[in-house]
Design a binder for these strands. Structure first.
Length: 410
RNA sequence: GGGUCGGUACCGAAGCGGUCAAACGGGGCAGACUGUAAAUCUGCUGGGCUCCGCCCUACGGAGGUUCAAAUCCUUCCCGGCCCA
């Protein structure tokens, strides 16, 4: 542990929304330096959605920082709480998962999380380990430590209650269960998205109620998804997954609205505050072009997860397709079995999978979104000869080579 | 337990016997434009066919009334609110 108290605090503070209470954390760090004992930094994760994206990455990178500062990261896989389903930010009750599902998801979560986290000072715990052992009496004792009024302070509960939407009792238990995790591992600080603030604070209270030193809390902003409005989430399909290919990442970053540039620069590309300020100035005085800034962000995001070279390649491919309107470098070849190398264009679109039904295929054609060998294909009733390889393009970015199965093998 | 209101397409939300595959908004898709897969504008948005037309499925579930039901009746399931 080489970083001084101030260095640590400065690094930790970067980009946070809440860091509470700061002086308490400073004391903990001071003590940790003195006694040479690492702090326990906790991050709980909900394995109901096992696909990690850049939104999750914001907090994970912060947890990584704690590791880099010599502290211990404890990742709690909420296999037990997954069965409750965290209601945070939801206007609806979440579906509950079975134990088997949460375990499988938890495993996949861990694999992805370690793309960012170091494996060295990482401890992974499943909260069924302690929550699963509690009996009804334990649960009642836990719930006795919090009041309905306190629980209802939480914004989404309050809103739902006011709007006459259902809240199940078990949802009240979620924050308590999460808080109990903090007690179980004796966390010094818990990280989370800004929507987790309430849950994290419950962790403070519960630890105190059980006679331990309260935890500090740290929240990071919720990164907006590629639509620019909603927070990034899989269910809204506006996410950039950690496991997306470089090309996908590049395209998705390029599709964010200009208004999100600085957010992504800071939280997806992990630029430091002064660089963010410089870019902000550059954009407003016209020195920097938004498109180029976006390209830079895209490259840096890819570099984080796939390496710099991949970033450059993805960039070149993007230029090729969208600027020069050329072909991507890996157009898939799809072979189709026909009797006479003739196929109706509608059938073809359904077979290839670009349209779920013939109706939709028809619409695509009628709207001029289907091209064969570079020419717009206008008649939905027409038949295509595929005795030779044909290039099918649907919309702006879906490319396929189509060929009859028999012809291709010749 | 009683009363009352409600459950409509991917989501929100109109419709309350025929003119309803269902207004409107969001989302999604396609096109135009552009500096980008930004923004803006336009169109489309249940499925099948012998495709300017016809047919099938669909308005919480199951029955029923009617020439005709998302719309009326019965019953069941689910939810909100009020009373107990």
């Amino acid at each position: 542990m080489t970083a001084t108290l101030n260095e640590q605090m400065d690094a930790i503070r970067q980009g946070t929304i809440d860091l509470l209470p700061e002086d308490e954390l400073a004391r903990k760090i001071e003590n940790s330096i003195k006694t040479n004992k690492p702090l326990v930094a906790k991050l709980g994760c909900d394995p109901s959605r096992p696909d990690l994206h850049l939104g999750h990455a914001v907090v994970l990178h912060k947890l990584r920082l704690f590791q880099d500062l010599g502290h211990t990261a404890v990742l709690i896989i909420g296999d037990f709480t997954g069965m409750i389903g965290d209601p945070t930010g939801k206007s609806k009750t979440r579906p509950q998962l079975t134990i088997e599902e949460t375990i499988a998801n938890g495993k996949s979560y861990l694999e992805q999380a370690t793309i960012i986290l170091s494996e060295n000072n990482l401890s992974v715990r499943y909260n069924s380990e302690w929550l699963g052992k509690m009996n009804f009496g334990d649960v009642i004792r836990l719930s006795a430590k919090y009041t309905v009024a306190q629980i209802l302070e939480r914004d989404d509960f309050a809103k739902r209650y006011k709007n006459g939407l259902p809240i199940s009792i078990h949802e009240f238990m979620y924050p308590l269960a999460q808080a109990y995790d903090s007690y179980a591992i004796d966390a010094d600080i818990e990280l989370g998205g800004s929507d987790q603030k309430f849950n994290l604070l419950v962790g403070r209270e519960i630890k105190r109620a059980y006679g331990l030193e309260p935890q500090c809390i740290l929240t990071m902003p919720l990164l907006e998804g590629t639509d620019g409005v909603e927070k990034m989430s899989k269910s809204l399909d506006n996410y950039i997954a950690l496991t997306d290919t470089p090309k996908e990442m590049f395209g998705k970053v390029m599709s964010i609205p200009d208004s999100l540039l600085l957010r992504y620069l800071q939280y997806a590309a992990l630029a430091k505050q002064d660089e963010v300020n410089n870019v902000k100035m550059g954009l407003s005085n016209g020195e920097l072009h938004p498109r180029n800034v976006k390209v830079d962000i895209a490259k840096r995001v890819i570099a984080l997860y796939h390496g710099e070279e991949q970033g450059q390649q993805a960039f070149e491919e993007f230029e090729r397709i969208f600027k020069n309107k050329e072909l991507p470098d890996d157009v898939p070849l799809i072979t189709i079995k026909t009797d006479d190398c003739q196929i109706k264009i509608l059938d073809l679109l359904v077979r290839v999978g670009v349209a779920p039904s013939k109706k939709e295929a028809k619409r695509l054609v009628e709207q001029g979104g289907v091209y064969v060998d570079g020419e717009t294909f206008k008649d939905p009733m027409e038949t295509l000869d595929i005795s030779q390889r044909r290039l099918l393009k649907v919309g702006k970015r879906k490319f396929y080579y189509i060929c009859d199965l028999m012809a291709d093998s010749l």
